[in-house]
Amino acid sequence: MNDRHHLALEQIRITLGEVTLLELDAAVGPGEVLTVMGPSGSGKSTLLAFVAGFLAPAFQATGRIRLDGRDITRLPAERRGIGLLFQDPLLFPHLSVAGNLRFGMPRSTPDRSDRVEDALGEIGLAGFGDRDPATLSGGQQARVALMRLLLSAPCAVLLDEPFAKLDTHLRHEMRQLVFSRLHEAGLPSLLVTHDREDAEDAGGSLIQLSA
């Protein structure tokens, strides 16, 4: 994972009918985190939906999203190469832990089972592959979700308040883990949150949206 990726949001403007929800122009370098903060209703989630490729038809958006120089604004979500981390770990309940990790791995990946085992070891869950994800603790699930994201080899990552639902002591630990792994992988990330501590730990630039 030594590729270095760049994410650029050029002249983004999202409107709902006559109302302009947000305007944004930013670039995120490899391993950097851009934090977008704002109260509910400020359009944070809409921004993420737009970048990920899920913007509801009711919204109109102008501007361009470039990933490593390539314009991905019109590409369908699955071909953008953008990974997403939600508030909830959202481990697929019908798959095992290993099945969840395998889900996102590109077909061409060699030695898939070994990679899964190594990944589990890296997050302290060696031997958990066959487990039912529902039997893991909240912190374990969050780590599996992060690993699943990384194994899918994205070129950029969107973080949708990924720590909001964690206990206070876990929250700090997870922040460290997530940001360090994203940095190591050289992935540009867009973090949406309303927790100032998230922004501080992320360490990148900050954009404040108004309601």
């Binding site: 959202l90 309940p93 889900f103």
Partner: peptide
């Protein structure tokens, strides 16, 4: 929950794969 499908898509699964491997079993 639409997040399941979105998650599958951002993990690189195609629309059809998301349907067969996530939505249908769930």
């Amino acid at each position: 929950d639409p997040r399941w499908t979105r998650l599958a898509l951002t993990l690189g699964a195609s629309r059809n794969a998301a349907f067969w491997r996530v939505r249908l079993p769930l």
